[in-house]
């Protein structure tokens, strides 16, 4: 399902799941490198719900210790691309 996904495709998934958990951000233009917590006021519950949705959709584990690597849409896409590669190769 996630084999050879491009960064753009992953970014689209990440963005879609974000607006699912925070529908009030649906009309926002969120730059790919914007800090979601600082610039878009994502609180810890929004963040956890987002991680939960990404985990369910992509089947990758996202431990709490890795949360700091998912600060923006782009960073999250990169992290998840790496994680899906790991899942496939293991």
């Amino acid at each position: 399902m996630t084999s050879h996904m491009t960064r753009d495709e992953m970014t689209a998934i990440v963005r879609e799941e974000l607006t699912n958990v925070a529908p009030d951000l649906a009309d926002e233009t969120i730059p790919i490198d914007a800090d979601l917590r600082e610039e878009f006021d994502l609180d810890s519950m929004d963040f956890l719900n987002w991680i939960t949705a990404l985990h369910k959709r992509l089947g990758v584990d996202i431990p709490e210790l890795d949360y700091p690597q998912l600060t923006s849409l782009g960073a999250a896409a990169d992290y998840l691309l790496r994680a899906t590669d790991r899942t496939k190769s293991s």
Binding site: S44, M45, L48, I51, T52, H55, K56, D61, I62, P63, E64, L65
Partner: peptide, 11 residues
């Protein structure tokens, strides 16, 4: 939380 999937983690 370390042993739990995200949907069961606590804040």
């Amino acid at each position: 939380n370390a042993d739990l999937p995200p949907d069961r983690r606590l804040l």
